[in-house]
Amino acid sequence: VKVFRALYTFEPRTPDELYFEEGDIIYITDMSDTNWWKGTSKGRTGLIPSNYVAEQ
């Protein structure tokens, strides 16, 4: 598990995607895809765009 911080707010387009706000901490559990990672924030899990976060 790696810890990342959201650089921007992300509004999901599908139920599989995770909503998060700029500054949120996201725990990444799967980075197997280059563009979409699986992450958890505020008790919810979903896909996030990798270019919206920076490693802490």
Rank of each mutant, 00 (worst) to 15 (best):
S50V: 09
D24V: 03
E21T: 07
R44I: 11
T14W: 13
T45Y: 14
F4D: 00
T45W: 15
P15Y: 07
K2A: 11
V53T: 02
S32V: 10
Y27F: 14
R13Y: 06
I28H: 00
T29L: 14
K2Q: 10
L18T: 00
G39A: 10
F20R: 00
R44S: 07
F4T: 04
D16C: 10
S50G: 04
G46P: 01
A54M: 13
F4C: 08
Y8Q: 11
I28D: 00
D30T: 03
F10I: 04
N35A: 13
S50M: 08
R5V: 15
F4R: 02
V53C: 04
E11A: 11
T40Q: 11
D16R: 08
E11V: 15
V1S: 11
W36L: 07
R5T: 11
G43C: 08
G46A: 02
D30W: 04
P15H: 09
D24F: 04
G43A: 04
I28L: 03
A54E: 15
E55V: 12
R13T: 14
T14L: 10
V53P: 02
Y19S: 13
T40A: 09
E11S: 12
E21N: 08
L18I: 07
I26H: 00
I26P: 00
W36E: 01
W37R: 01
D33S: 09
G23P: 00
Y19C: 10
T14D: 08
P49E: 03
T14S: 14
S41D: 02
V1G: 13
Y8F: 12
V53E: 02
A6W: 02
G46F: 03
P12I: 06
P49K: 06
D16V: 08
T9G: 08
T29D: 07
E22L: 10
Y52N: 02
L18Q: 00
D33T: 07
D16K: 11
Y27V: 11
Q56D: 14
L7Y: 03
I25C: 09
D30Y: 04
F10Y: 15
Y8C: 15
K38S: 09
I28F: 01
N51V: 09
V53N: 01
S41N: 12
V53A: 03
D24T: 06
N51C: 15
E17R: 05
T14G: 13
G46R: 01
Q56I: 15
L18D: 00
V1N: 11
S32D: 08
K42E: 09
G46S: 00
D16E: 14
S41G: 04
S50W: 06
E22T: 11
E22Q: 13
A54R: 12
F10W: 15
V3W: 11
V3E: 09
R44G: 10
A54I: 15
G39V: 03
E17F: 11
G43F: 04
S41Q: 05
D30V: 04
K2Y: 10
K42R: 14
T9F: 05
E22G: 06
G46I: 02
R44F: 08
I48P: 02
K2V: 10
D33N: 11
Y27C: 12
G46Q: 01
E55I: 12
T34M: 14
T40H: 14
L47A: 05
D24S: 05
D33Q: 07
R5I: 15
Y52K: 06
L47V: 07
R13F: 07
W37F: 11
L47I: 10
S32T: 14
A6R: 01
S41V: 15
